[in-house]
Nucleic acid binder design. Sequence first.
RNA 1: GCGGGCGUGGCGGAAUUGGUAGACGCGCCGGAUUCAAAAUCCGGUUCUGGUGACAGAGUGUCGGUUCGAGCCCGACCGCCCGUACCA
Length: 735
Amino acid sequence: MSRLNSREIEPKWQKIWDDAAVFRARRDPEKPKYYVLEMFPYPSGRIHMGHVRNYTLGDVIARYKRATGHAVLHPMGWDAFGMPAENAAMREGVHPGVWTRQNIADMRDQMKPLGFSIDWSREFATCDPEYYGQQQRLFLDFLEAGLVARKSAVVNWDPVDMTVLANEQVENGRGWRSGALVERRELTQWFFRITDFSDDLLAALDGLENWPDKVRLMQANWIGKSRGLQFSFEVVDGPEGHAALEVYTTRPDTLLGASFAAISPDHPLALKLAETNGDLATFAEECRRIGTSEEALETAEKRGFDTGLRVRHPLDPDWTLPIWVANFILMDYGTGAIFGCPAHDQRDLDFARKYDLPVIDVFKSSADAPDVIDEAYVPPKTQSVTFVRPLDGGPDMTGTEAIDRAITFAEGRGLGEGVTKFRLRDWGVSRQRYWGAPIPVVHCERCGVVPEKRENLPIRLPDDVDISIPGNPLARHPTWSQTTCPVCGGPARRETDTMDTFVDSSWYFARFTSPDADTPTDPEEAGYWMTVDQYIGGVEHAILHLLYSRFFARAMHQTGHLPATAVEPFAALFTQGMVCHETYSIPGPEAEGQKRWFAPDEVKRTEAGATVIETGEPAVIGPSIKMSKSKRNTVDPVDIVEQYGADTARWFVMSDSPPERDVEWTAAGADAAWKHLQRVWRLADEIRADPDGPEDEALLRTVHRTIDAVTVRRSASSSGPSGSARISSASLQTR
RNA sequence: GCGGGCGUGGCGGAAUUGGUAGACGCGCCGGAUUCAAAAUCCGGUUCUGGUGACAGAGUGUCGGUUCGAGCCCGACCGCCCGUACCA
């Protein structure tokens, strides 16, 4: 009787697959097509268990579909632009391109032994000029189609390093390298007009039946369609050009509860007043130090500054309200100004309590009204439309009806108009960095901003750059930006901003259908393979990446690069859970931050606890959390493959937990997975040992019951991988 | 802060959707087999008390609805993801 020897079998079959090119995707009119895709990796240098889980999920589906007579496309590539390469360059003095290419080579070497059924002939990296050149072509096509805009946006500015910082590089309001207080600064930047598609991106979510509800809900909330009233306050003795203050509210029915007006520190009126009011200018300056992330802005302590100006209440000209500048008003949403209604909005209430502003309950007559307002409330069911009801004589009514009625009433009186607004903002794609796709436009003194000629694409990144200091190496390169104007032929300057790396990942799935085409896509190939039938990746991409990709598919359709059938790029989406591991640490002499972390292979784990192998010190066993470098709780797939073989790693991540849930990697679990494979091997071996003997009817029956159960469950489940999860549990019960 | 998710034995997880909580698997314990070990096979395994029959407790916490709640409702706690320049 033989034993499973993964070390021999796996390379043997991988070579046979490779030589026969069995995973090469081929169009076949006789077969239904199936495109399965896992979110492509960032080439950090090492694959981790999260990758193994992700690609195994896709691999199971790819193999299943091939086995059931489909023409399958299952490609792999590299999301190769981004900040880590520049950081490595600064840290180690290595060129970002060299670093990235080496990482790709390393990771490919680590992935190959896992035996995924990938069509490697389609591999590309987004830092290939052949790829980003086509992306530049798309940029120009979008520009021509009116899908690109140029406007100003706020960035984090490090005044010491003289560079733009990513939100991630801002720590407690300070630049991570310089430690300088970060400022907000406005730059003119390029935007994709994703808001042109707000309505469609929202409405089409309904059709994405094979997406998780939670992702659809998150996207819907992100797009944030709301119906409200836009109206203007008359500003009493306002400065020139500011006789009126436009505000937008989703709760016009609470208008009589207004006790103040508030504007963003970046609102034009605030800027105007700050010109002559030093204290206000100082206050606004302090607000601008918070940073640009929504999270930072919203969690900051609510602060305000009374401008001394007042506005007239629209329903009562004798009633005036103070105008405050408040740090929790976002210039990006609505009009950058609100009316404050403390009784019915918690943020307004916090603000009113802090600055001693009135709290007026407009639902006092409602049965739900509290005697004293401790927290903002809105009556759940019946609510009187306080300012409308006495005037139009109608009945009390519920939420949205009340709001609609207030809008109708206000419109009838000429007070304002009903407006639909979206929370979604246009997508700013300009980045002041080197390692990204150059934006293919030219700045000419005579002709202004002009697009590059398509025949000049790709606009390549220069290799000879100085990365050792912060800032944009393209901007300080002595010659790269010098060019001639495509229109007048005069001297001109290249755009030195590069594109957001999310652009790279917003169409790679389309490029996989024709990776060598000299246009962004080959219509015939894209028409055959698109859309992606099953997309698999982490839930952390639920909003941005997936929304940008949905936008891109629409924009690519509009510019003739994708068929109408592919405006939704991913027919089905599966979000897998994370791979976790417990942590081992020894607390330092000082505080939390002093902990020393130990990797699983540095620790001897017993029932009683854990000790550091080298020193024999006892280590504290921490909770199982996502594998990460900083906590050192990673298990290298390469080690597992060497120890047990790829099938053990693949089997473990597929069987131990349902794929949509987090899985905890344990040495015992890996061992068990290996044992299970041994059992399967032995079972098959026993049958093979007596090929002429009578068939084992009980076994045959079990096998077919299992197949039946798997098939039934698969077709019943809405998306693929949850079905394949059942394959695991069903097989485990065999015999 | 806001949006989304999760919380059941030592562990992964079941629970036919409001009807015997812990299926199945892992691990562990005991036994068989073996010169011995591995592998394999059999049995046990929520916790507490009890030799035992058995008794009591139990699905993050508190409260509610119900004849009946892991499941429905309300409030809270903890962890995770996202929050538009991390990918």
